[in-house]
């Protein structure tokens, strides 16, 4: 009897061990890495020098950039086979401020399956479902609020600078993007709003995610492109402010399509 019990225990142990080995073979551990984005700002191929009147746009405006603040959201990596992964486990909206170092690098918390991704996409700004007033109550994001009467939510971007205007004076420009308005009679009667966020899809070079490693990419905003292709944006024509000028914001949206590219660090 005693020997029988021992025999049964040995058999059960062997079965358990075999079963454990088999399970290990069937479901290997997930192989994941991370993605980190460094946000950089260029003008004519080199890093932007802030507060320097060193730049001339296609309209011939001599200009400087003082600061850039903007949101990107819904960053997604795409594989050649059509599958994709949305990086949203911590926050799907990221704020970048050229005056705040901490915002210029962001490592997503998402575990990204290893592999080769051939493109990255994101929304420039915030889509209308998410762009709700008071969702950011803390600074600096809260400073980006877009007034309720102009559509609410948040600026997608503030790009502030100055240009030398037609009479040779340094004139400030606030190249601000957000929800546009359709005016029945300007400025008192608004008959509708225009969502000006737009999608950006970049396919420069393969983004390789390796198990347990962080892949670093540099997302480059080419500032000069905001003012060219397909529209030549002229500060002398549009003036210093555009939050209430949908036609100007539409030009910015159209021009925004080729503002970004990326490189692998």
């Amino acid at each position: 009897m005693r020997y029988s019990i021992i025999t049964v225990l040995i058999i059960l142990s062997v079965i358990f061990m075999i079963s454990s080995c088999c399970e290990g073979n069937i479901e290997p551990e997930a192989q994941n890495g991370k993605l980190s984005i460094e946000f950089v700002h260029y003008n004519n191929g080199t890093e932007l020098i802030f507060d320097s009147l060193a730049y001339t746009n296609e309209a011939g405006n001599n200009y400087l950039v003082n600061e850039i603040q903007y949101f990107i959201s819904d960053v997604t990596l795409h594989k050649p086979n059509g599958s994709s992964i949305l990086l949203n486990s911590w926050s799907d909206i990221h704020y970048i401020d050229t005056d705040i170092k901490e915002t210029k690098t962001h490592t997503y918390r998402d575990e990204v399956p290893e592999g080769v991704y051939n493109s990255i996409s994101f929304t420039f700004g915030i889509d209308e479902d998410k762009n709700q007033s008071l969702m950011f109550v803390n600074a600096p994001e809260s400073f980006m609020f877009w007034p309720e009467n102009l559509g609410g939510g948040y600026h997608y971007m503030k790009l502030n600078g100055k240009w030398i205007n037609e009479i040779g004076l340094q004139a400030p420009f606030n190249f601000h993007l957000g929800i546009g308005q359709i005016y029945h009679s300007f400025p008192d009667s608004i008959s509708g709003f225009v969502q000006n966020y737009f999608g950006v899809n970049l396919e420069n070079e393969p983004i390789i995610i390796k198990n347990t490693e962080t892949t670093n990419i540099k997302l480059i905003m080419n500032v000069e492109n905001w003012f060219s292709t397909p529209h030549i944006y002229d500060h002398n024509y549009w003036g210093g402010d555009i939050m209430q000028k949908q036609d100007a914001m539409q030009q910015a949206v159209d021009n925004g399509n080729d503002v970004f590219n990326y490189t692998i660090n």
């Binding site: 809260s142 400073f143 555009i242 939050m243 209430q244």
Partner: peptide, 24 residues
């Protein structure tokens, strides 16, 4: 709260920033 108006809000807040300052 409008740029074509007095444009106070960029520095002094409003509905989305009820402190009525950026402290900047």
């Amino acid at each position: 709260t409008t740029e074509e108006g007095a444009d106070c809000f960029h520095c002094h807040g409003g509905y989305g920033n009820p402190l009525f300052t950026t402290h900047l």
